[in-house]
Design a protein around this nucleic acid. Structure first.
Lengths: 207, 207, 207, 207
DNA sequence: AATGAATGAGTTTTCATTCAT
DNA sequence: TATGAATGAAAACTCATTCAT
């Protein structure tokens, strides 16, 4: 993904991220919300993007690429399945924007709106982009290489198993009213151990 | 939930369900889409609901209640954790509307839009309504009662474990391009076995 | 052309005609100009027309049909070429709106804008509509039947000969600054006699 | 009309002509269309013209002056009315841009838009500019001097007679779908003969 | 002098909601 | 009660013009 963004585009992308952090549904965002927050004129957005959907889908993809790219880079140095899972969960705890971005991204991938269609197209046409699916795959590779998890299980199933935990943890945090008082460290451990029980090597379990 | 709906309300609720089955995002639905499909006048919707959000959230909650209520009733006769999980997954395969309803419902619970707020309020003020969380809880109860799963694990964790699998399976089916050629029976089995490995009794695993 | 227009459509068409009479170029007219003058809400225009161009082209065609239809009906009772030409010129003198409508209509037929394209399509798909070309044809028929003009000349040429005089007279009236003081009766006579000299029976000229 | 145009202005005028040749209505042209085609920066247009209307009206007048000036110069050597008419019609056939420029020019003179007002002002304030009206006048002078046409008829009428034929021929060519297969040579002859019958010396006709 | 990125006033268009029938 | 025509507030989008470089 191109790194040298024009300052205006950077401002627009930043504004989209800010809105996401404030829990605004990107499907309902107005162009003037974005440009206003970016501190630029409304017309300027249209100098860089042909319409609202292009702008939002680009911003979302950019951030997803940044977030997942960073995580994948950090994880690449890890040799342990648990460590990488813990790292991902910790990122979502620390940086709310990552969690919210992930949620909106996955939601958009499964609805049928105009932004969704653009996202799918862009992902299809640019295999370089880092998206959660790739991150999940990487974590699985680590686990398999290391022998933490059982490579015999079908890949689609393993993808679901890992992705669902990560996503559901994100959802869970937004839904629980008492999330603040909730012991996240413990939940991380439980989720990770659960995944290992689920995906772990069969022989390991009998050891 | 009140059972004796006026025929107009029934028509409106039915129209919302139809739209959901056609993969339309309820956040983008127009009042005229709903009333048109329901075969009634646009103004009539406002005789029964104060605004669009009230209409949509009521419809969604009604269907969720119906779907989950039906499932909970069917499951109540089952004594086995696996059987109930298989039943739920099968329902989502057979009746696309259930799957899509579930997805939209969960998405709405986690976004911050006007429909979301109404949904939360209504759920809070009417503990009778059957929602996916309740269904999950019931499945867990069965598993615990039966001894299929280990009751020692914390409830929030178990809820995530079960709910996330079901939801991710739903997402997965909508996202995968090759979903058609995808062996669902096998995936059901894998998911169910995975959950048992994850949540199952520790001693059971060594048996 | 359908006669029973809804009152709102009638108001919209009337407003377009008023604007034309005020010498406003229909290509630059705003929807709010039209609805404001029609005394109805802006949104109402979109209940009847899918966009601005549809509205304007429909209005123009409607008026052209009315004007030409009326003229053709009045002329049908005439047996003389001169009489019908005089009648047409007189109409343009008396009712400025007819003249201006004619001018805008012909201009639109020859530009390449969005309204022009719609006009051409509509004319092609509805051969019932009365347009200046039809009126010209009718006048020629009268002249030929009566023997005032020479039927041997090619039709395209005769069409140009008649149409150009009518249109140019209309242009002329808008362009001449001193048009007010100008003796129109005399000009009518000259134009008519000129046409007869141009198109008249060859043998007649030698009589 | 000043001959030594700055290269930028020349480029702008050329761009306007190109657009006219492509049948674009100058009233709908964007500044960026013109500057883009001229290969210069958008801001540069405002170094030479105070606004879009100034630019377009100047360009149009420049080209009209060039075209009519050239024609008037060529015609000045001719001694025959027919020859000059044939020459004008032939120019419109050969150089579409001349025909289209003429049409747009006449249309602009009769609408009431901002460009129209500027055109009228400039023509009024600079009697040197060659415009179609002058060309028509010259052709008439030749005809009268030569004795081809009857000088007794009022000048306004004769202007209409000549101008309208030329203009209508231009219109006709753009409007007729089958213009391609249409025998232009024959039409030229018919139009010219028609004008002579219409305007020619009464005594000549009996010769 | 030349530029083109940035702007925002001005349009078109949409659609939830109202209200006369 | 039921309706759907009418509305106008709100949103998307355009483009002439400016101005810092």
């Amino acid at each position: 993904m191109k790194e040298n963004l024009s300052p205006k585009v950077k401002a627009l992308y930043g504004a989209v991220l800010e809105l996401i952090e404030e829990n605004v549904d990107v499907r309902n965002v107005k162009v003037s919300d974005i440009t206003g927050r970016a501190g630029i004129g409304k017309g300027t957005a249209y100098e860089y993007f042909s319409n609202k959907e292009e702008l939002i889908s680009s911003a979302l993809l950019y951030h997803m690429d940044q977030i997942c790219g960073q995580m994948m880079s950090d994880i690449s140095g890890m040799e342990d399945f648990s460590e990488s899972i813990h790292y991902i969960l910790m990122c979502m705890d620390r940086e709310i924007s990552k969690r919210d971005c992930l949620i909106q991204f996955i939601q958009l991938l499964t609805d049928n709106g105009p932004i969704s269609k653009l996202l799918h197209d862009k992902i299809k046409n640019n295999s370089e982009i880092c998206i959660p699916q790739k991150l999940t795959e990487q974590v699985l590779q680590i686990g398999i290489r290391r022998g933490d998890i059982d490579g015999q299980l079908p890949l689609p199933y393993m993808r679901i198993a890992v992705m669902s935990k990560i996503l559901m943890y994100a959802f869970y945090m937004t839904m629980e009213e008492d999330a603040a008082g909730f012991d996240r460290q413990q939940m991380h451990r439980l989720l990770c151990e659960g995944m290992l029980r689920e995906l772990g090597r069969t022989d390991a379990k009998n050891m």
